[in-house]
Design a protein around this nucleic acid. Sequence first.
DNA 1: CAACAGTGTTCGACAATGCCGACCAGGGTT
DNA 2: AACCCTGGTCGGCATTGTCGAACACTGTTG
Lengths: 252, 252
Amino acid sequence: MPGQVQSIARAAAILRLLAGGSGRLGLLEIARALDLPKGTAHGLVRTLQDVGFVEQDKTSGKYQLGAALLHLGTSYLDVNELRSRSINWADPLAARSGEAVRIGTLLDSEVLVVHHVFRPDDTLQTLDVGALLPPHATALGKVLLAYEARGGGFGELVPYTRRTLASPRALARALSAIREAGWGSDIEEMTVGEAGIAAPIRGYGGLVVGAIGISGPVERVCDAHGQPRVTLVTHVREAARAVSRDLGGRGQ
Amino acid sequence: MPGQVQSIARAAAILRLLAGGSGRLGLLEIARALDLPKGTAHGLVRTLQDVGFVEQDKTSGKYQLGAALLHLGTSYLDVNELRSRSINWADPLAARSGEAVRIGTLLDSEVLVVHHVFRPDDTLQTLDVGALLPPHATALGKVLLAYEARGGGFGELVPYTRRTLASPRALARALSAIREAGWGSDIEEMTVGEAGIAAPIRGYGGLVVGAIGISGPVERVCDAHGQPRVTLVTHVREAARAVSRDLGGRGQ
DNA sequence: CAACAGTGTTCGACAATGCCGACCAGGGTT
DNA sequence: AACCCTGGTCGGCATTGTCGAACACTGTTG
């Protein structure tokens, strides 16, 4: 594969940096973080500003992400096949299971949430479409990792709770168990008191392109033995199959 | 201001094209639309693909927006000062008025919705955060236009309904009336049966940085004379002032 | 069945392009 | 008032990306 266009790759790095960091960044901070000369960074940032991908706070001079990105992001949702096919099945799943439903896909070894249906009750919930979840500590993420072709080493496995799978060996075992069973779960591995169940979504050719899952309080998601309830597992797997069928895949 | 970085400007144009068009586009369509040689367009698109801003449908070969943009877009929401300050005031406004609340800002002569609170009833509504609204046919848009520094000519004023302000003269009159009154409305100018009320949000230095408004069925938003209800107008203007105060502006 | 009209993709040579480093200009702090 | 820090500018060099033609492939058409 021939070389990349340098300036575009650098511009993307700047945007990722701004998205990841604590919001606003100064020009020199950007230049230092990417190991670029001041002048070069300035040129890149200024054209990013011209196209609306970056805004500058006039008082502090610092830079932040721009409004044009918001529209591009939602435009992506409109085109995304995985999301559009899932929508019809996510709502029934939320209704049947009584829990929140999320659909995610792998992006740079993280889980990108592309759709989110709130838990049917009226509790206050924040929409996390567009959020990135840690793959090793969520049911969605582990399912996606299990079927990921590029089985390279995982990133650093930060432990969120005592039950997080923080060692590569434990994670690899869990992934092969998921491949065996065709679904996966996480029990208080990301936040205490929360559990989740997920199953893979296959696209054209049987390739896994995403995952659908529910998550909620551990006492509702799991039975008396601390295992995910069979009825919920069935619901999730059926939803995953339905979406896969819609996508033209073989559906598990 | 010295020249732009050509390749970044072109890359941004490609992304805008993909966002605006009907989703997927072929390489030649992109090249033709931007008047670029095939090879050049390919290089740009390929690096956009490498950084995740563009995806390629393997079967058709066509290109579409990529997943990385979704995360960038929502990251923008997290940083956006206008949105974060508005959130606390949008919910009460929705509750008091009983209508849907939206907060918008001007982007490229269009209205970008940065926050959206559903109407309190349980009707089915779609979240339009990230959507672009026509400025001349919505209360939010007309308020933003009225206080826009760069008072250049408006784009083409497409008529949506019979009551849309489609002539530059009528629109200019409406805008100066808004400046006079400090708030604006639209009555069946975008969709029949719908009306809206909006007021400007001022940031540091008194500059208008956004607008907040409600919208709903014309029979609820307007009184017997077909005019916006005074109580609703007051609620909207108070909310706008509150947000402005939070932003450090003078609040009207 | 062959010629064709479309794709998306690769390659290499030229030179235009954007990179780099040093140089300005303003603000805050010592 | 001298100093640091910031963001912004300018011009020369050569690295960089652009460009057009050629390639591989698919589906259609004569």
